[in-house]
Design a protein around this nucleic acid. Structure first.
Lengths: 248, 248
DNA sequence: GAGATCCTTCCGCTGGGCGAAAGTCCAGTG
DNA sequence: CACTGGACTTTCGCCCAGCGGAAGGATCTC
């Protein structure tokens, strides 16, 4: 407890969490000044708190002076049961798809109005892939995202459809066109993208159902859908059904 | 700052880290009282700090009243660059082994006097596997562990060899015998176990070299090594060499 | 119904935590 | 090589955030 603070009522715990929250996938290494700024705490305060986090292994300081998330948080973070049942059940099926297609394979769920990637098995081919486990990407321009959006509550669809950000020049940004695509996804049970998220990368995805509800999406990322689109869809659907059955 | 504390000098940050550190792979869900006990803080203090961690998403409280690690720590933990270069380079090779063998595949490094599992790709066969990503297991009774132990500094080998815990009735607990096995591992470049860690599970592992130094081990877990031991070893060695080359 | 355990709330006490200011260090620039 | 700017470190008077024993409520078990 400090007194003499510029922010009465802000606790040490909340400052610690703010400092840890300063890191994200675009900011994996931060200087002390950056950390303080992003966490909204004065530099000397950040300096003291960060030193304790380093001592406890929650953060680590590189020779360059930048801080990164430490091993202790890696350990603890792995214990978080984020969709653990789904991930455990899906893993063998994802391996099957990966072995059969050699493409990047995804398992994702809806996270508000974005897609959260739970598993990513990178393929061997040099197709650019921006996702990683734990990352969130937009729903309107990813295969798994379109699947999850097509089956999202009306309110989520409305929210997403009214702010369609362009990511590449192929990104669908007209609400009407995307709406039509989502109807097609609901009808056919398959979503595709063509360089809408990343140039040089196309994707195809299908829903994972449990009790008539879409709980996740699985998909692959390839250079082109022209070759063997039907085979990819078949493999994904077989795996999705296997996962759905195993979820009980 | 608080005053009026039973533990002068103990900071809020260190208490927070102690609470988070109360979780481990054998304690993934904890009651408030358990948390307080394991963190060494009085229950009302734990109550207050835990409530803040829950509010910040670092912990989550289940309907049963038990606490688990929350989504925010999963997010932050994933940002920790724990052997990230090695894991990234190794991933495709591990997929190759997995596709070829259908067995559980491991990538591990030495962590003091234990093995730290960086990757685990579960196989389809019902071979019991106790490892998981982020877990540490003993070196003397796991395949990857024997590889890493064989190439560990003398001090580490001495330390491990003088306290060999029995895990199953097949665990090697005589230092002399293990020493001979380690010599064989250094000579042949392969380590094996037979139900030494888990009944019903055998393993085979090889080292990953970079600049004549063992930086990791990869291995597979199977029901029996009697079938196709040579094939498993060949696949592992090819992959290990690929990883080593890619590490530069 | 009693007992044990867990969880929640209270509140007087107090020193942990606060951050502006000053100083040090280092990289970049002219 | 000297100077500048920015990052980082240290100081220390101030003060209220945090402390936890005690008490009470809730729940589970026998």
């Amino acid at each position: 407890m400090a007194g003499n603070t510029s922010a009465p009522g802000v606790t040490v715990t909340s400052r610690v969490l703010a400092l840890l929250g300063a890191f994200d996938e675009h900011h994996r290494a931060l200087t002390l000044t950056d950390l303080a700024r992003r966490a909204g705490v004065p530099v000397p305060t950040a300096h003291r708190l960060v030193a304790e986090l380093v001592a406890g292994g929650a953060l680590a300081r590189r020779p360059s002076g930048e801080y990164v998330v430490g091993r202790r948080l890696w350990d603890v973070g792995l214990l978080a049961p984020v969709e653990i049942g789904l991930r455990r059940v899906a893993e063998p099926f994802l391996h099957d798809i990966h072995a059969a297609t050699r493409a990047t394979v995804h398992l994702a769920v809806r996270d508000g109005s974005e897609v959260l990637y739970l598993e990513r098995m990178r393929g061997r081919a040099s197709v650019p892939v921006v996702s990683q486990i734990g990352s969130t990407l937009p729903m309107h321009c990813t295969g798994v995202g379109k699947v999850l959006l097509a089956h999202a509550p009306d309110e989520v669809q409305r929210q997403v459809l009214q702010s369609l950000q362009r990511v590449t020049r192929y990104t669908v940004t007209q609400p009407g066109l995307l709406q039509q695509q989502l109807e097609g996804v609901r009808r056919d049970g398959v979503a595709t993208t063509s360089e809408e998220m990343t140039l040089g990368a196309c994707s195809v995805a299908v829903p994972v159902m449990r009790d008539d509800e879409v709980v996740a999406a699985i998909g692959v990322v390839v250079r082109s859908l022209k070759r063997d689109r039907a085979g990819l869809v078949a493999a994904l659907q077989v795996a999705a059904q296997g996962i759905g059955r195993s979820l009980g």
